[in-house]
Simulated scan of single mutants.
Amino acid sequence: MQVDFYHLTMAPLDRLLPVIADRVMAGGGRLLIVSGDADQRAALDRQLWMVPADGFLPHAQAGEGNDGIQPILIAADVQPTNGARHVALADGQWRDEALSFERAFHFFDGDRIAEARAAWRALADREGVERRYWKQNDQGRWEQAA
């Protein structure tokens, strides 16, 4: 399983997450977006209706529709009721339940860097876990740094 750590320094989550979600869907996958913050979940819900500019990313918040048919589900907990094999941890908080997915995207900003470092170290010796650390360069492009 792969865990991608995204350190948000220049681009905000609401610009990066739709790109990741679109790529997951383009590959035939489903995505679970997890945040313990209800306001953040509502903001991400609104954002996914507007991006990409030429359409939208089909999604719902958990419990507001038929969760099982949603290609992208926004939830408070790591419960893939939509059958997702990809999980995006949007609130900067690492959850070990993400290790049951094929791929996890862990987004964090400067306020959560210490927690992200602790998660990175904790995953170092986990068998079958491949870690990747992504950061933005001066042009705003994402580069794999580790």
Score class of each variant (00 low, 15 high):
Leu44Gln: 00
Gln61Met: 10
Ala119Asp: 03
Tyr6Ile: 03
Asp67Tyr: 02
Trp134His: 04
Gln93Thr: 14
Met10Asp: 15
Gly28Glu: 03
Gln70Pro: 03
Asp125Leu: 11
Leu123Arg: 08
Trp120Tyr: 13
Leu44Ile: 05
Asp14Ile: 12
Gly65Gln: 12
Gln136His: 09
Ile69His: 07
Thr9Tyr: 07
Leu31Lys: 10
Arg95Asp: 01
Arg95Cys: 00
Ala26Thr: 09
Gln47Trp: 00
Glu130Ser: 13
Asp14His: 07
Arg126Met: 03
Pro71Lys: 06
Ser100Ala: 15
Glu143Pro: 15
Leu17Cys: 08
Arg15Ala: 15
Val24Lys: 06
Arg46Asp: 10
Leu99Pro: 05
Ile33Tyr: 07
Asp37Pro: 13
Tyr6Cys: 00
Asp138Ala: 15
Arg41Gly: 04
Gly140Thr: 11
Leu48Gly: 02
Leu13Arg: 00
Gln139Lys: 13
Arg85Gly: 10
Ala43Arg: 04
Gln70Ile: 09
Arg117Asn: 14
Ala122Pro: 07
His7Glu: 11
His86Val: 12
Gly36Met: 10
Asp125Thr: 09
Gln2Pro: 06
Leu8Phe: 02
Val51Gly: 04
Arg126Asn: 06
Glu127Arg: 14
Asp138Glu: 14
Pro18Ser: 11
Val3Asn: 01
Leu73Asn: 01
Arg103Ile: 01
Asp125Phe: 02
Ala42Leu: 10
Arg141Gly: 15
Trp142His: 09
Arg141His: 15
Arg15Gln: 12
Val87Ser: 01
Ile33Thr: 10
Lys135Thr: 10
Ala11Gly: 00
Ala118Pro: 04
Arg126Cys: 02
Leu99Thr: 13
Asn66Thr: 12
Phe56His: 13
Val51Ala: 15
Gly110His: 13
Ile113His: 14
Leu48Ser: 00
Leu89Cys: 01
Phe5Glu: 07
Ala145Pro: 02
Arg46Phe: 02
Arg131Phe: 05
Pro52Asp: 03
Leu73Gln: 01
Asp22Ala: 14
Asp4Leu: 08
Gln2Met: 14
Pro52Ser: 14
Leu32Ile: 10
Trp134Cys: 06
Phe5Leu: 14
Asn137Glu: 05
Phe101Glu: 15
Gly29Gln: 06
Trp94Thr: 05
Pro58Glu: 01
Gly83Cys: 11
Glu102Leu: 10
Arg15Asn: 10
Arg85Met: 13
